[in-house]
Design a protein around this nucleic acid. Structure first.
Lengths: 203, 203
DNA sequence: ATATTAAGCGGACCGCAGTCCGTTTAGACT
DNA sequence: AGTCTAAACGGACTGCGGTCCGCTTAATAT
């Protein structure tokens, strides 16, 4: 069982993939990575991608469903690794450390993630509150935070509290702080630590 | 001095407005309100608005700059009243109450605001991190929260902490909780109260 | 009244995401 | 090899936000 649920773009459905489809998928992913590297996430258009991969536009959308879906696919490896780290990895991020320390480490890891993949993550969440808040990885983070809150003894609606904490770690918001306001990552991390430490005090 | 800074759509610039421009502005605002009432915020397109107001499309964009700008204009009265309430209004929302109580009241007022104007607010923030996070009203809320945090004695980077709290009250997020997850407004308010109460304990 | 001019106007136009549908083709079955 | 069919393909098309630029007109000066 995979941590990342099946999405368009992943070859893990019930029937095996047709060979031309597989070839086009590889071509598209390679072209997408190249274009992102060359022009930046925001400048990559779906037409450009179709052209570069030498494929029809319909094929691009058949594969990924939408621009956001494409970006999710490009993120899925990094995302899976991130999930592995906080679910199975070594403490303090993974299991074994006390919940407060895990929460702190989670925020720090998330900040590093956003520094590296933030633009992709932002593009993957654009144009749909559904994708933004209920995409499988988001739900996993949310549940993880909720679980840590419960472990720490915070029993007053941990689900909503986890939503609030998740909002703090939102890629778009953090990117905005990092770039538009020149906030150093360390300062973001310190603020996160302060926030969760105060929150979990005396539980 | 007005609380709401001058934006395209407001007639408060240096030179008085030409009469045809004034007439068209009124026609556009009326048409926009009607269309929103009839079809809902998300279904209103700029072409539709131009057509309904019997005005060229260029005029619509000259007036409001963008779809988001239009929505901000439609919100500006409600926004101004909200600001008056927490800056000059009676306690506990306005000055006179202790900071924790003012923060709690602020969140509650914000939740009511989102219940009533959330769709407009969401549309006003779409398609631009700039508009989303640095629009004048957003900056005012942010500064208000920061000030209350300082008054409460929270001196560890209150600016970033205010950003986190602001994230919790983000219209899109709250709308998603309210509608997609059927969270009752009272539950949102209770969670907010819990959050800020814990945060300001022992300062 | 007439001339001047800058603000205002309108709608053709552009780029983009996403859809539709007639055509092609991989793979299975005979 | 030949047939069949469902999956995949491609690119013209739509709808939207936003821009551009030549035309119109309100306000002012004469």
């Amino acid at each position: 069982m995979s941590l990342i649920p099946i999405r368009p773009g992943s070859p893990s459905g019930t029937q095996p993939e047709r060979s031309d489809a597989a070839r086009n998928r590889e071509r598209l992913l390679q072209a997408a990575r190249d274009l992102v590297a060359e022009h930046g996430v925001d400048a990559v258009t779906m037409d450009m991608l179709a052209c570069r991969a030498d494929v029809g536009k319909g094929t691009v959308f058949r594969r990924f469903g939408s621009r956001a879906g494409l970006m999710m696919t490009l993120l899925s490896d990094a995302e899976a690794e991130f999930q592995r780290n906080f679910i199975f990895g070594p403490p303090p991020l993974g299991p074994g450390a006390p919940p407060l320390e895990r929460l702190i480490a989670f925020g720090e890891a998330r900040i590093r993630y956003v520094e590296e993949y933030g633009e992709l993550a932002r593009a993957a969440a654009e144009h749909s509150p559904q994708n933004r808040h209920d995409a499988p990885p988001v739900v996993v983070w949310h549940r993880h935070i909720e679980m840590l809150l419960r472990e720490a003894g915070l029993d007053r609606d941990p689900w909503l509290l986890a939503l609030s904490l998740g909002a703090t770690l939102d890629p778009e918001r953090m990117l905005h702080a990092l770039h538009a306001h020149r906030v150093a990552p360390e300062r973001l991390a310190a603020s996160w630590r302060e926030l969760v430490t105060r929150l979990l005090k005396d539980c």
